[in-house]
C-alpha cells in the first residue's frame, strides 16, 4: 500500500518541530514511532502534507530519575521502557504493561508519547499513565505547559493537546508507601490490542484499610477513563475479595452506554470484561501493596 505523497521534515529540536507544526497548521503530523500513523496513512485515513519526524530530536527520549518522580521522554520506545532498570525498580507496572504491547518489532518503534497523543481507544499506555497520575509536559514556541493526565483524554482519538504543541515529557510522581499497581488486559489475539484493559494503583493505610485508589479502564469505551465509582467503593475499606468484586462490578459505570461494539467484542461482552479485568487488576495491586 502506498501513502499519499508528503514532504518529510526532520527538525533537530523540539522548538523547531513546534514551529513547523504552527507553520503547517492542520496539514502536518508528528512522526515518532509511526506504528499508528503509517498504517492510517496507508489506508489514506490520514493524508498529512508534511510529516515532521521527531524520532531523532535530541532530549526527547530517555528516562530520567528526578527523585520525586521519573521523567520519560515522549519519544522513548516501549522496548526502552520494558528494559529500563530504573522503571522496573520504581514503576514495575509500566515495564510490565510495555512488555505486553504488540510484539518485539513494534515495541522497538512505538513510543509512549505517540501512544498518549494518538489516543487509540484500545491503547495500553493511556490507561497505565492515567492510573499512575502522571503529569505531561508539552512545548510550543511560546513555552511549556503542564497537563494533568486526568485532563488529557477528550474523546475518541482526541486529546487536549493543542495543534502546535509537542508532548515532550511524561512525568510519573513517586507513589506513596504501601502502594501496589497492576495492569491486566484481555487482548485481541492477533493485534494484542486491549479488548479491555484495567490499570489499578492501590494504597493501603497502616490499619489495613485502603486509603487511595486510581483505577483506569481502556479498550472498553471511546477513551480511557478513571473508574471513579470503583475507587470510591475501595477507599476506606479492607480489600477483601467481596469488597473488590463489588467495586470491580462498577468499573464500567463511567462508560455508561458508550461501550465499544465491534467485530472484536460486543458492548455487552466488553461491559462484562471490564468488571473481570478490574477485579483481577485490583486484587493484584492490593496484594502488591503490602
Amino acid at each position: 500500500m502506498v501513502t499519499s505523497d508528503f514532504e518529510y521534515l526532520a527538525p533537530s529540536t523540539v522548538a523547531e518541530a513546534s514551529r513547523l507544526l504552527s507553520k503547517y497548521r492542520g496539514e502536518a503530523k508528528l512522526l515518532a514511532g509511526g506504528h499508528s500513523l503509517i498504517p492510517l496513512m496507508k489506508l489514506r485515513l490520514a493524508e498529512p502534507k508534511y510529516l515532521i519526524d521527531i524520532s531523532q530530536v535530541k532530549g526527547l527520549s530517555g528516562i530520567k530519575d528526578e527523585r520525586s518522580a521519573i521523567a520519560i521522554g515522549a519519544a522513548t520506545t516501549y522496548a526502552e521502557i520494558e528494559s529500563s532498570a530504573l522503571i522496573r525498580r520504581r514503576f514495575p507496572i509500566l515495564a510490565e504493561a510495555a512488555g505486553q504491547i504488540a510484539d518485539l518489532q513494534v515495541r522497538n518503534r512505538g513510543t509512549i508519547g505517540g501512544s498518549l497523543a494518538h489516543a487509540d481507544p484500545a491503547g495500553d499506555m493511556p490507561a497505565v499513565v492515567l492510573a499512575l497520575g502522571a503529569e505531561l509536559v508539552a512545548l510550543t514556541a511560546r513555552g511549556t505547559r503542564t497537563i494533568s493526565v486526568d485532563r488529557l483524554n477528550v474523546d475518541l482519538l482526541t486529546t487536549s493537546l493543542r495543534p502546535s504543541e509537542v508532548l515532550t515529557t511524561i512525568r510519573i510522581p513517586n507513589l506513596p508507601a504501601r502502594t501496589g499497581a497492576a495492569y491486566k488486559k484481555f487482548e485481541n489475539k492477533a493485534s494484542h490490542y486491549a479488548v479491555v484493559g484495567v490499570a489499578a494503583v492501590v494504597t493501603m493505610g497502616a490499619g489495613g484499610v485502603c486509603t487511595g485508589a486510581r483505577i483506569a479502564v481502556t479498550g472498553a469505551g471511546p477513551k480511557p477513563v478513571r473508574a471513579k465509582r470503583t475507587e470510591r467503593i475501595l477507599i476506606g475499606k479492607e480489600l477483601t475479595p467481596s469488597v473488590i468484586r463489588r467495586a470491580a462490578s462498577r468499573a464500567g459505570a463511567e462508560i455508561g452506554d458508550r461501550f465499544n461494539d465491534d467485530i472484536h467484542a460486543s458492548s455487552e461482552y466488553r461491559a462484562h470484561l471490564t468488571a473481570v479485568m478490574a477485579e483481577r487488576a485490583i486484587t493484584e495491586a492490593a496484594a502488591r501493596a503490602k
Partner: peptide, 13 residues
C-alpha cells in the same frame, strides 16, 4: 541492530 517491520518505516527514516 533492532528488529523492525520494514513495511511500517519510511526509507527516509
Amino acid at each position: 541492530g533492532q528488529a523492525v517491520k520494514s513495511c511500517t518505516v519510511f526509507a527516509v527514516q
